[in-house]
Structures are given as structure tokens and as C-alpha cells.
Design a protein around this nucleic acid. Structure first.
Length: 882
DNA sequence: GTGATCACGCAC
DNA sequence: GGCGTACGTGATCACG
């Protein structure tokens, strides 16, 4: 039987481009859209076994719809050059596969496909359209299916009339009416204001078409909705016209000419070599039979449901390695109830409900056996979660969560459904699809739940080999195996251990704050001449700028700014300002740190158990949530007092804190090789004073405190990727003055300047930058023609190697530190990491050892050409460890 | 009521 | 038009 496949070339290329990191060949040729397109194509050839295939592209500038609606496509940003340059490569790809491609001056790919499917339909050909554009669903008919690419391009979702009916309750042609009512911002189709998908579907279920809806406006429920429809009759009609795909384009192509009988492996592998698609090369068969005889279709998904009764029969299936996924009800694994366990290997997929799992001795022993290799998604979550059930997991040998983060750190917090879509054949539903979200979240019935979890385990199993291959290509195996993976187990211990909080102390501080805030509130109302919500920037703005007529110094999108830096400048004008600043400061302490922290104290342990996120930041730093223990106040004394509430969990113990001194500037000295900066650190000088001496050309004694403060700001700016504007804001000086400072800095530290220029050039060539340990960050905007986007990417190119390497270093130190504690049999425990600081709780008899050991380990974590320095201190509370 | 977004402020 | 990386809170607004 014949099967005609039509591919919407522009749509698929676009999807691929935005879904994949901006890969490039060693020659600097961008290839991510080509790679995505190829992956999709191979999948289609294998799964659909087309006898006829064709790819349609947009052509020419004048799209016939323009004459009807001038703004059509106005909302679309111009195709980035990084993508445009890949279209010729995609054409080359299709030629290598001997696949026909087609374009028609003045017409979009949609219209060509619309016309061809009509022809195919008339001849009753089985036809499938591949696209990322939902509009195309209108082409679906008895003979024509539409396959939509999902998140990325590796997954496709097939729509027949049945599926459209199930999903929308509509006939395929009504998709046009749907768009007519709800519009489509990506195509700049306006639709009717206030009508989204929900409303549009409701109206269509009732009336059937845009025309019918408009004829029956009076019967429509909802006053506002009626009004919107009445006022936008023209818009609705025009939107419908815009969404309608032309099916009568002057296409001169005989479907019979698109015959496909498999591809020749030789030109294809030539092309792959040119593109440096190493992992795809192995998949190419030299002769590919078109009918797919002998090659069975992918097996339908199935899994075993384990119960009390049948579990014994599956004991032998607990093999090594095996994929493991623990399903929990909720994000916070310190509290989340367990629902069940999914397990998968080559020919087994199982789901074990938690009630069964926890009583299944053989499974629990398998989990705790370090010799049984487990492949997981977020092993820290599994490890900590199961520890709360007094069980253990050992032998985690691959974590797809961490691997996926390393491959693309910009897509923060990878989810298993997106990993599966990128690296596996099994489709995994997002948790939101299964559970619903927000208030409507609900644990589904067992049949839905078990299948979902089974899919997760299967997807982990399938992803591991692909991820391993890609890590190897990027030379990141060590970064994962020797840094991130071991670190995740150290973090697991720290999170489970938790930090003891003195809640009485917090309550007492809260009461003090309440009193002070009440007094300030009265004072502010008095000065303002009436009560208002001081916490509302809007209301505050009205008081300050309308009623009190203070000058507006800065504006936000929504009105005059009331931020602290503005208020400080307004302070001389009116006594209310100081009161507001104090109110803000104390209010922040009360809401975020007293109340916020108190909410997070675990009832069983009286401790806070934070969640360290190891896959969130673009630079490689950790982040901390629930509570965030990485932004506890320290700069202002009132806030710093919060730290008094963080205490050791054992009587008589101490808190010990150690922080790296100037780690980022030391790293800059190392990677830039700037002689002056290296000299400063080797002599052990105060770096800001030294900077002031060099920039202002004075001796050490002549450096005033203002000079040092300014030099310090310049150093910060250097680390963050400097701009004259940013520095001027920070120092409250003019842009010109800031520019002069920077120029003088670069005169003295010319090695830094050289490195900054080089790293930007390198980023432009590669499309990414790396840290010392080969962590990678892609910078898709580095060659953008938009000045802002490009400047931002350039600053990022300068900042990420510095900040990211600092993150690498402290992560190494943490692993070494935990090893040292275990090796020496110390009772001390690592509790917190705050980017350049580690906090421990230490029994009195280990104080001396730890005071020496911690800085030693931190300073020797990585050897640079300047020394690393760590300062240590201790006390009864975190506050006292200063 | 719920959810998303904004302004603001805290840390390194 | 703008210095890097995070997260949490309260206000506000759109939505149902």
C-alpha cells in the first residue's frame, strides 16, 4: 500500500532550531536545525515507510495574504541568521536522501501542502503531513493525517479525524473556525479579544462555525463576551480567512513524481560526516528497503503491575543495570508521600505500588545493594526521599537529570518528559498532564499513574546510551562522573541532615519587629496625611509623587520607581522617606526571613531541610529553595541577626563557616594570565586597594576609602562583564566617568582586557563558552544583530567562565571535604553551601581539626597559578561564626 | 478563588 | 538601553 508523506520544511526547521542548543561544526557552521530535521526525517522514514515523500518550503517575499491583512506575520521576529544559513544545508540533506523538495514563489509551504493533500485525497491516497503548525490540522480527512512535532522534533503526535474529535470535539475543518475565534499570536491572527481556546471551543460546540456564532450573538451567554463578539465581527471573519489554508495553489507537481524507494547510504553518510553528526552515522544502513519487510514495527508499550501476590515471580527481574524512578506526590521530597516505583531494563518494565514496594524485602535489598547499578532521574531526590522512609538506595551509576543539564544548562531544571522527547523513543507525559496543576492537582487512578511511572522508567532506560554518547562528544564524562554525580550524594546528606533553627529566637525577633513596624506605620501615615498600603509601590507612588510632589527620578514599566536607590536620593526632601526605607527593611525581614523561614521548619526535626537545585543555573552554581538558605541577610546588622537562629543540632557543638576570599578574581587572574593581577594575589595584597593604587596611580598610603570603594565596584563590574552604564549606576557617577575608570583599569590590567576580547571572539566562533572543568553554556544571541541581545551575550561570555569555574571549584571542595570527614571518622557535618562559603556543625573536640582541615581542603581543591585562600571562623550560632 | 506577572530586595 | 547568578514576598490584574 502506498503512503504519501508531506513535510512542512520551514515549520520543522524552525522547531528544530529553537528546540536544540546552537550546535556547530568545528568549522563554525551551525547545524542544530539540520540535526533536528535529520532526526525527524530518519524517524519518519523508519516508522511511516513512505512510498512517496516530499518537502515543501516557503518561497519569495510576497505572501498572498499580505494584501488582505497588512499586519499578517507582523508579530513574527525575523528569521535569525543562524537559522537562515541552515536552509541550504537542509536542501543538501534532502538531495543526499534523494527526496523531492518543492517551493512556489509567493506561496507558503502550507498552501503547497494544502493543494497537494487535496489532490492526494481525491485519489484516496494514504497521506501524512509532518509539521509543527497546528493550523494544518484543518487538512485532516479520511485519507489524510497530520503529525505534529512535539517539544523538539523527535516526538510526533498523529492526528486523524478521531483524534481531533477526541481532543477538541471538532471536525477538522472547524479548526479554521477555532483559529478565527481565538486567533494565533504566533501568526499574528487577531481572533476575538477575550476569547481563548476554552471559550472558542464552547462556542463552536454550540454553534458550529464562526458564521453561525456571529448570527447568534444574542443567544451567547456572558455580557462581556457578547459585546466582544459584536465589536469584532470583522476581525473574526478576517481571522478565519487568514487561518484558511489555500488548497488551489498553482502547483505543477505530479504526486507520482515523488516516489521514494529508500536512500543510498553513501551520499547520506558523506553529508553526515560534513555535518559532524557522529552519532547518526552509525544508524545509516547502506541499503534501506522501502517496504520495511522483515523489520517489525515498534512493540506496543506494556508493563507489569507488581502486587503482593505476584511479586515473587519478578524477583529475578531485578537486574543490573536497571532504570529506576520513584514517583512521589509533590515537589518537596522531604515531605512528599511515595506513590510507587517504576523499573525498566532491556525487556522488562514494571510498576510497583509503594505499599507493595516497602514490604518487598528483595526489592529493598536490591535498592540498597551498591553492586546493583541504577540509572535514575535525579538521584538526590531518590536518595533523600527514601531516607525519610528509613531505607537506602546505593549504586546509582547514571543520572539522566544531571546529564541532560550538563548538555544544555540553559534549559534549566530538565523534566523527564522533555528528556524523553529528546533522547528516548518512549513518550512521557508531563506531570502536569497527569496530575493537573495548582488547585486542581490530583493523584490519578492507579491505572493512569502506573502507566505514567512505567513510561518514566522506560524513558530513563532508553535515554542513558544516547546521553552517554553526547556527553562523550562534548568531553563531559568526567564533569558528570567525578563532579556532579558525586556532589549530588554529598548534597543529599546535607539536605537530609538539615540545619537546626532556634524558633523561639525567631518568634522573639518577630515580636520586636512587629512593634517597630507598628510604630513606623503610624509615623508614615501621619507624615503622609492618611493611611495607605505602604507595601504597594503603586499606592506609595501616589503618596510620594502626587500628594507630596516629590520629583520622579526613575520610572518602571508601570509607573514611577520607588526602589531603595531612588528613595535614598529623595531622603533630603521629606522625612517620610527614611521611615519608609526602614519600614521596607524591617518588613522584608519579617515576611521573608521570620515568617518565611518559620513556615519551613520541619515538624519532626525542628530543622530546615532546604532543596539544593543542581540543575537550575546557567552558570553551574547551585540554587536553594524551600527555604532559600543562600540569601540569609548579612550586610546590615539588623538582618544579620537572623543568623543567630541557625544553631548546631547537638548540645555543646559549634557552627563553623569558611569562605573563599576573592575566588572569582583569582580565577580571572588564572584564566586571563594577567601579570599584574597574578602579582597582586601572589603578594597576598588586598585586591581592592591594589586595584585603587594601579587605577589612580597612587601609593598604598594614598588610597582613600572612596578610591577603594570605587575600585571595589570596578572589580565587581569586571567579574560581571562590565558596561560603563552599569558601573555608573552602581557608583552614582556619570557614564563618561565610569567609562574612564574602565579604560584606566584595562590599561593597567591589559591581560584581562586581552582575555575578555578573546573570550567574546571565541564565543562568536563556537556559539558557547566553557569553564575550567569544561562545563558549557550556549550563547545563542552572541551573533545577534540586536545590539542589546548581543551585548548581553557578550557580558555573559565574560562572566560565565569566571562564575562557572568558581562553582566548579567549590563543588570539588565539597566532595573532597565530605571524603575527608569520612576518612578521618569525624563527627562534624557539612550543612550549607552559599556559593563561596561552606557551613559546618562541629563538636567541640573537633574544632581544632576542622579549623585547619576545612581551609586546607578548600584551598587545594584545584591548583591555579595564583593561590586560593579560604578564611574560617566559628561560634555558637551562624551569626557568631564571623 | 487561582494563577501569572511585576516590583522589590536579599544573597554571592 | 544596559553590570552577572539565583529565590521569595506582596500587590495587582486577568480569568473563570
Amino acid at each position: 500500500m502506498s503512503h504519501f508523506v508531506l513535510i512542512d520544511g520551514n515549520s520543522v526547521a524552525n522547531r528544530a532550531f529553537y528546540a536544540l542548543p546552537l550546535l556547530s561544526t568545528s568549522a563554525g557552521l551551525h547545524t542544530n536545525a539540520v540535526l533536528g530535521f535529520t532526526t525527524m526525517l530518519l524517524k519518519v522514514l523508519e516508522e511511516m515507510k513512505p512510498t512517496h515523500i516530499m518537502v515543501a518550503f516557503d518561497a519569495g517575499k510576497v505572501v498572498f495574504r499580505h494584501s488582505e491583512y497588512a499586519e499578517y506575520k507582523g508579530g513574527r521576529s525575523k528569521t535569525p541568521p543562524e537559522l537562515s544559513e541552515q536552509f541550504p544545508l537542509i536542501r543538501e540533506l534532502l538531495d543526499a536522501f534523494s527526496i523531492k523538495r518543492f517551493e512556489l514563489e509567493g506561496y507558503e509551504a502550507d498552501d503547497i501542502i494544502g493543494t497537494l493533500t487535496k489532490q492526494a485525497d481525491e485519489q484516496a491516497w494514504k497521506t501524512t503531513v509532518i509539521t509543527g503548525d497546528k493550523d494544518m490540522l484543518q487538512l485532516v480527512s479520511e485519507h489524510v493525517s497530520v503529525a505534529l512535532t512535539r517539544k523538539g522534533v523527535s516526538e510526533i503526535e498523529l492526528y486523524t479525524p478521531q483524534e481531533i474529535h477526541e481532543k477538541y470535539g471538532l471536525k477538522p475543518l472547524q479548526i479554521i473556525d477555532l483559529k478565527g475565534l481565538m486567533g494565533d499570536s504566533s501568526d499574528n491572527i487577531p481572533g476575538v479579544p477575550g476569547v481563548g481556546e476554552k471559550t472558542a471551543l464552547k462556542l463552536l460546540h454550540e454553534y458550529g462555525s464562526v458564521e453561525q456564532v456571529l448570527e447568534n450573538i444574542d443567544k451567547v451567554s456572558g455580557k462581556k463576551l457578547q459585546e466582544n463578539l459584536r465589536e469584532n465581527v470583522d476581525k473574526a471573519n478576517m481571522s478565519k480567512a487568514l487561518a484558511t489554508i489555500l488548497r488551489e495553489a498553482p502547483v505543477e507537481l505530479d504526486v507520482q513524481d515523488t516516489g521514494f524507494e529508500g536512500y543510498d547510504g553513501v551520499p547520506v553518510s558523506e553529508f553526515f560526516k560534513k555535518m559532524e553528526f557522529k552519532s547518526l552515522l552509525s544508524k545509516i544502513k547502506v541499503a534501506q528497503p522501502a517496504d520495511g519487510s522483515g523489520q517489525a514495527d515498534a512493540k506496543p508499550f506494556s508493563f507489569e503491575m507488581i502486587s503482593e501476590e505476584n511479586k515473587v515471580a519478578y524477583e529475578s527481574k531485578l537486574t543490573s543495570p536497571m532504570a529506576l524512578y520513584i514517583e512521589m506526590d509533590g515537589e518537596n521530597y522531604h515531605h512528599a508521600p511515595f506513590l510507587g516505583i517504576g523499573l525498566a531494563a532491556e525487556d522488562t518494565v514494571m510498576f510497583v505500588p509503594w505499599d507493595v514496594a516497602k514490604e518487598w524485602k528483595v526489592l529493598c535489598e536490591w535498592l540498597a545493594d551498591p553492586a546493583k547499578e541504577k540509572w535514575v532521574f535525579d538521584g538526590k531526590r531518590d536518595t533523600v526521599g527514601i531516607a525519610w522512609h528509613d531505607l537506602a538506595i546505593k549504586g546509582i551509576s547514571f543520572d539522566v537529570y544531571l546529564a541532560s543539564y550538563l548538555l544544555n544548562a540553559t534549559e534549566s531544571n530538565p523534566t523527564l518528559d522533555s528528556i524523553a522527547a529528546q533522547y528516548a523513543q518512549t513518550r512521557v507525559l508531563s506531570d502536569e498532564e497527569v496530575y493537573g496543576k495548582g488547585a486542581k492537582r490530583l493523584v490519578p487512578e492507579m491505572d493512569v499513574l502506573s502507566e505514567h511511572v512505567a513510561h518514566k522508567a522506560a524513558a530513563i532506560w532508553q535515554s542513558v546510551p544516547v546521553l552517554r554518547e553526547q556527553l562523550a562528544e562534548n568531553e563531559m564524562e568526567k564533569l558528570l562522573g567525578e563532579l556532579e554525580a558525586p556532589l549530588s550524594m554529598v548534597l543529599a546528606l546535607m539536605e537530609k541532615q538539615g540545619v537546626k533553627v532556634n524558633s523561639e529566637r525567631l518568634v522573639q525577633m518577630g515580636e520586636d519587629l512587629d512593634k517597630k513596624l507598628a510604630g513606623l506605620t503610624d509615623q508614615i501615615y501621619e507624615l503622609a496625611g492618611g493611611a495607605f498600603n505602604i507595601n504597594s509601590p503603586k499606592q506609595l507612588g501616589e503618596i510620594l509623587f502626587d500628594r507630596l510632589s516629590l520629583p520622579v527620578l526613575k520610572k518602571t514599566k508601570t509607573g514611577p520607581s520607588t526602589s531603595a536607590d531612588v528613595l535614598e536620593k529623595l531622603a533630603p526632601y521629606h522625612p517620610i522617606i527614611d521611615a519608609i526605607l526602614t519600614f521596607r527593611q524591617l518588613g522584608k525581614l519579617r515576611s521573608t526571613y521570620i515568617e518565611g523561614l518559620t513556615k519551613e521548619i520541619h515538624t519532626k526535626t525542628s530543622k530546615v531541610h532546604t532543596l539544593y537545585n543542581q540543575a537550575t543555573t546557567a552558570t553551574g552554581r547551585l540554587s536553594s529553595t524551600d527555604p532559600n538558605l543562600q540569601n540569609i541577610p548579612i550586610r546590615m546588622e539588623e538582618g544579620r541577626k537572623i543568623r543567630e537562629a541557625f544553631i548546631p543540632s547537638e548540645d555543646g557543638w559549634y557552627m563553623l563557616a569558611a569562605d573563599y576570599s576573592q575566588i572569582e578574581l583569582r580565577i580571572l587572574a588564572h584564566i586571563s594570565q594577567d601579570e599584574n593581577l597574578i602579582d597582586a594575589f601572589q603578594k597576598g595584597m588586598d585586591i581592592h586597594t591594589r586595584t585603587a593604587m594601579d587605577v589612580f596611580g597612587v601609593s598604598e598610603e594614598e588610597v582613600t576609602s572612596l578610591m577603594r570603594r570605587q575600585a571595589k565596584a570596578v572589580n565587581f563590574g569586571i567579574v560581571y562583564g562590565i558596561s560603563d552604564y552599569g558601573l555608573s549606576q552602581n557608583l552614582n557617577i556619570t557614564r563618561k566617568e565610569a567609562g574612564d575608570f574602565i579604560e584606566r583599569y584595562f590599561d593597567v590590567f591589559s591581560g584581562v582586557k586581552r582575555w575578555m576580547d578573546e573570550i567574546v571572539q571565541q564565543a562568536k566562533a563556537d556559539g558557547y563558552v566553557t569553564t575550567l572543568l569544561n562545563r558549557r553554556r550556549y550563547l545563542p544571541d552572541i551573533r545577534s544583530s540586536n545590539f542589546n541581545l548581543r551585548s548581553f551575550a557578550e557580558r555573559t561570555a565574560m562572566n560565565t567562565p569566571i562564575q562557572g569555574t568558581a562553582a566548579d571549584v567549590i563543588k570539588l571542595a565539597m566532595i573532597c571535604m565530605q571524603e575527608a570527614i569520612e576518612e578521618k571518622g569525624l563527627a562534624s557535618r557539612m550543612l550549607l553551601q552559599v556559593h563561596d562559603e561552606l557551613v559546618f556543625e562541629v563538636p567541640e573536640n573537633e574544632l581544632e581539626v576542622m579549623r585547619k582541615l576545612v581551609p586546607e581542603v578548600m584551598e587545594s581543591a584545584l591548583s591555579l597559578n595564583v593561590p586560593l585562600k579560604a578564611d574560617v571562623s566559628d561560634g555558637r550560632t551562624w551569626y557568631d561564626a564571623k
